[in-house]
Measured scan of single mutants.
Amino acid sequence: GQVHVGDTTYHFPNPEEARKFAEKAAKENNLQVTQHGNTFKVE
């Protein structure tokens, strides 16, 4: 799974890890998570 936060892309071998990371980043920054397959975008 990939997580895009601003201009930075994080790669995770496990989509579940990617999702947890995205949700945590979104919560900390008052942002939203959008999911496209195994790619998550925090914005």
Rank of each mutant, 00 (worst) to 15 (best):
1 G>R: 04
1 G>A: 15
1 G>S: 14
1 G>F: 15
1 G>I: 11
1 G>E: 02
2 Q>R: 13
2 Q>A: 10
2 Q>C: 15
3 V>Q: 01
3 V>G: 01
3 V>S: 01
3 V>D: 00
3 V>I: 03
3 V>T: 03
4 H>F: 13
4 H>S: 09
4 H>R: 12
4 H>D: 07
4 H>K: 13
5 V>I: 15
5 V>D: 04
5 V>R: 04
6 G>P: 02
6 G>C: 11
6 G>H: 08
6 G>S: 05
6 G>N: 09
6 G>L: 08
7 D>E: 11
7 D>T: 12
7 D>C: 15
7 D>G: 14
7 D>I: 09
7 D>A: 12
7 D>K: 13
8 T>V: 14
8 T>N: 11
8 T>Y: 13
8 T>I: 14
9 T>M: 10
9 T>G: 01
9 T>E: 06
9 T>C: 14
9 T>A: 06
9 T>N: 04
10 Y>P: 00
10 Y>Q: 01
10 Y>I: 05
10 Y>V: 04
11 H>E: 07
11 H>N: 10
11 H>R: 08
11 H>A: 06
12 F>D: 00
12 F>C: 10
13 P>F: 07
13 P>R: 11
13 P>I: 10
14 N>V: 04
14 N>R: 04
14 N>L: 04
14 N>G: 07
14 N>K: 04
14 N>D: 11
15 P>C: 15
15 P>E: 13
16 E>Q: 08
16 E>S: 07
16 E>V: 07
17 E>L: 11
17 E>S: 09
17 E>F: 05
17 E>A: 11
18 A>R: 00
18 A>H: 00
18 A>T: 00
18 A>Y: 01
19 R>E: 04
19 R>C: 08
19 R>A: 06
19 R>Y: 06
20 K>S: 09
20 K>Q: 12
20 K>W: 09
20 K>G: 05
20 K>A: 14
21 F>R: 00
21 F>G: 00
21 F>P: 00
21 F>T: 00
21 F>E: 00
22 A>G: 01
22 A>R: 01
22 A>W: 03
22 A>E: 00
22 A>F: 02
23 E>G: 04
23 E>P: 00
23 E>V: 10
23 E>K: 06
24 K>W: 14
24 K>Y: 11
24 K>V: 08
24 K>T: 09
25 A>F: 15
25 A>G: 02
25 A>N: 06
25 A>H: 14
25 A>L: 15
25 A>W: 15
26 A>H: 01
26 A>E: 01
26 A>M: 03
27 K>D: 06
27 K>M: 12
27 K>G: 07
27 K>P: 00
27 K>F: 11
27 K>T: 08
27 K>V: 08
27 K>Q: 11
27 K>S: 10
27 K>E: 10
28 E>F: 10
28 E>C: 13
28 E>R: 11
28 E>N: 08
28 E>W: 10
29 N>Q: 12
29 N>M: 15
30 N>Q: 08
30 N>E: 06
30 N>W: 06
30 N>D: 09
31 L>F: 07
31 L>I: 04
31 L>K: 06
31 L>M: 15
32 Q>Y: 12
32 Q>S: 12
32 Q>D: 06
32 Q>I: 15
33 V>N: 02
33 V>K: 01
33 V>H: 03
33 V>F: 10
33 V>Y: 09
34 T>K: 09
34 T>R: 09
34 T>F: 13
34 T>Y: 12
34 T>G: 03
35 Q>R: 13
35 Q>P: 04
35 Q>A: 08
35 Q>S: 06
36 H>A: 09
36 H>C: 15
36 H>Y: 14
37 G>K: 05
37 G>Q: 05
37 G>A: 05
37 G>W: 04
37 G>N: 06
37 G>L: 05
37 G>H: 05
38 N>R: 05
38 N>I: 05
38 N>W: 06
38 N>V: 05
38 N>H: 07
38 N>L: 05
38 N>M: 05
39 T>W: 07
40 F>W: 11
40 F>K: 00
40 F>C: 03
40 F>I: 04
40 F>E: 02
40 F>R: 00
40 F>V: 06
41 K>V: 15
41 K>Y: 15
41 K>H: 15
41 K>Q: 09
42 V>I: 09
42 V>F: 03
42 V>H: 03
42 V>D: 02
42 V>W: 01
42 V>A: 03
42 V>N: 03
42 V>Q: 02
42 V>P: 03
43 E>R: 08
43 E>G: 14
43 E>V: 12
43 E>L: 11
